Deep mutational scan, measured.
Amino acid sequence: PQEEYKKRAKKALKKGDEDTAREALKRAGLSPDQAEEFIRRFL
């Protein structure tokens, strides 16, 4: 589910792994723009 992928993305970002985070967010159904926004907000 979407929440699970978002959790995964946050874990990846904590490790500084933005590529894995983007992949997880893409799987969560976010557009690339939404994924970038999510990452920017998190960092």
Rank of each mutant, 00 (worst) to 15 (best):
P1F: 14
P1V: 14
P1M: 15
P1D: 15
P1G: 13
Q2Y: 12
Q2I: 12
Q2R: 11
Q2A: 13
Q2L: 13
Q2H: 11
E3R: 09
E3H: 08
E4Q: 08
E4D: 14
E4R: 08
E4N: 09
E4K: 08
E4F: 10
Y5F: 12
Y5R: 03
Y5S: 07
Y5C: 10
K6D: 05
K6A: 07
K7Y: 06
K7Q: 13
K7D: 14
K7T: 10
R8Q: 15
R8S: 11
R8L: 15
R8W: 09
R8A: 15
R8G: 06
R8P: 02
R8T: 12
A9I: 04
A9L: 03
A9H: 02
A9F: 02
K10V: 15
K10N: 07
K10I: 15
K10E: 15
K11V: 14
K11N: 13
K11P: 01
K11H: 11
K11D: 15
K11Y: 06
K11W: 05
K11G: 07
A12N: 03
A12W: 04
A12T: 01
A12E: 03
A12R: 02
L13H: 01
L13D: 01
L13K: 01
L13C: 04
K14V: 13
K14Y: 11
K14D: 11
K14T: 12
K14F: 10
K14S: 13
K15T: 12
K15N: 14
K15E: 15
K15M: 14
K15S: 13
K15L: 14
G16T: 02
G16K: 05
G16R: 05
D17V: 02
D17M: 06
D17E: 06
D17H: 06
E18C: 13
E18R: 12
E18S: 10
E18N: 08
D19H: 12
D19Y: 10
D19F: 12
D19T: 13
D19K: 13
D19G: 11
D19V: 13
T20M: 10
T20K: 09
T20W: 06
T20F: 07
T20A: 13
A21W: 02
A21F: 02
A21T: 02
A21Y: 02
A21E: 00
R22N: 04
R22I: 05
R22M: 07
R22L: 07
R22Q: 04
R22V: 04
E23P: 00
E23M: 05
E23G: 05
E23W: 05
E23N: 07
A24L: 15
A24S: 08
A24Q: 14
A24T: 08
A24P: 00
L25W: 00
L25C: 00
L25Y: 01
L25D: 00
L25A: 02
K26M: 12
K26T: 10
K26I: 12
K26Q: 11
K26S: 12
K26E: 10
R27L: 15
R27K: 14
A28K: 01
A28I: 05
A28H: 02
A28P: 00
G29I: 00
G29M: 03
G29D: 03
G29F: 03
L30P: 00
L30Y: 10
L30N: 01
L30I: 04
L30F: 12
S31L: 07
S31R: 06
S31Q: 06
S31P: 06
S31I: 03
P32Q: 11
P32Y: 10
P32W: 11
P32M: 09
P32D: 13
D33A: 13
D33M: 11
D33V: 11
Q34N: 05
Q34I: 05
A35I: 15
A35P: 00
A35Q: 10
A35C: 10
E36M: 06
E36K: 05
E36P: 00
E36Q: 06
E36W: 04
E37A: 10
E37T: 05
E37K: 06
E37R: 06
E37P: 00
F38E: 03
F38C: 06
F38W: 10
F38T: 02
F38H: 02
F38P: 00
I39M: 05
I39G: 00
I39L: 05
I39K: 01
I39D: 00
I39A: 01
R40P: 02
R40A: 09
R40Q: 12
R40N: 11
R40W: 09
R40V: 08
R41A: 12
R41W: 11
R41T: 10
R41Q: 14
F42G: 04
L43M: 10
L43T: 09
L43G: 08
L43H: 11
L43K: 12
